[in-house]
């Protein structure tokens, strides 16, 4: 909002200069549209890496929105629900070193219910620290407010995957990657995957070509399976009603491997989907369409 400053008749040369500037900008806009239409991946990856360091602005804005919601509704004190210890021996059985991947406590059920109680400002700071630490490469020195778990290695970079992928299940995204209030335990925990909610029995398909590394059942994850893809990428599917493949079996992208259920620690039927690159957890959201 501002008051009218310029007279209606702007002087000629000024007008011409503005017109030329506008024309140049329109050409750039046209170029952006054409490049995006014909070389969507290469051009965007280049610019994203150069300017944005691979940051997903929509996700960051979404986190701000989540923070506002938590702030207004209030969240429970982080120390309240410490007693629940459900993790078991499944960690070894599954065959991955990083135990926390399979810690059922970190796996929230689908509906992102926020608890009652006082707001805990350190979470915003912790989230910001976590984002910054992505670029520092000093995850180990990350100071977190007491009462909060330090997450395993997470990586917010959006990689160009070296294989074709499909969305593992149709449905509604009910829980995103990142810190959130655990709907059962009620405290702030890092959610290492995304939740896609749909009716029990909805087919779950392989995210990409690969080999089934493990199938099993745990208190937290319920019936789950893990698929290893090329180049160190691994995907995990949890809370399945049934798992239709066996360890060691080759699967192709889009092949039905399981069905959505609510086994394990859930409050309703959904697929909990994790994606890892080496030992780092990736945000699966950019690679799926829900």
């Amino acid at each position: 909002m501002e008051e009218q400053k310029r007279p209606d008749s702007v002087d000629g040369t000024k007008n011409q200069a503005a017109f030329v500037r506008l024309l140049v900008s329109l050409v750039i806009l046209g170029a952006a549209l054409i490049l995006r239409a014909f070389y969507p991946d290469q051009t965007r990856d280049f610019l994203q890496k150069a300017v944005a360091g691979g940051m997903d602005y929509t996700a960051i804005l979404g986190d701000v929105g989540d923070g506002l919601r938590a702030f207004v509704l209030g969240v429970p004190h982080p120390d309240e629900h410490k007693e629940a210890e459900v993790a078991g021996e499944e960690e070894q059985a599954i065959g991955f070193e990083q135990g926390q991947t399979f810690d059922p406590e970190n796996e929230p059920p689908p509906d992102g219910v926020y608890g009652q109680g006082g707001f805990d400002p350190p979470i915003l700071w912790a989230d910001a620290r976590l984002l910054l630490s992505q670029f520092d490469g000093e995850d180990d020195t990350l100071p977190l407010p007491f009462g909060m778990q330090k997450p395993d290695k997470v990586d917010y970079t959006v990689y160009e995957l070296p294989f074709e992928t499909v969305t593992p299940a149709d449905g509604v995204l009910t829980s995103s990657f990142g810190y959130r209030i655990h709907p059962i335990y009620g405290d702030w925990r890092f959610h290492y995957g995304i939740d896609i909610a749909n009716k029990t029995g909805t087919p779950i398909v392989a995210f990409a070509d690969g080999t089934v590394a493990a199938t099993g059942k745990s208190d937290g994850y319920g019936n789950y399976l893990i698929i290893e893809h090329s180049d160190g990428y691994v995907s995990l599917y949890a809370h399945c009603k049934t798992v239709d493949v066996k360890a060691g079996q080759e699967v192709t992208r889009g092949q039905e491997v399981a069905a959505v259920g609510s086994t394990g620690l859930t409050t309703g039927p959904h697929l909990h989907f994790e994606l890892r690159r080496g030992d780092a957890f990736l945000n699966p959201a950019p690679y799926v369409d829900v």
């Binding site: 750039i28 806009l29 170029a31 952006a32 995006r36 965007r44 944005a52």
Partner: peptide, 12 residues
């Protein structure tokens, strides 16, 4: 116009 171009380019 430039802003729109940049946003179109960065949009995920």
């Amino acid at each position: 116009v430039l802003l729109v171009a940049v946003l179109i380019y960065l949009d995920q």
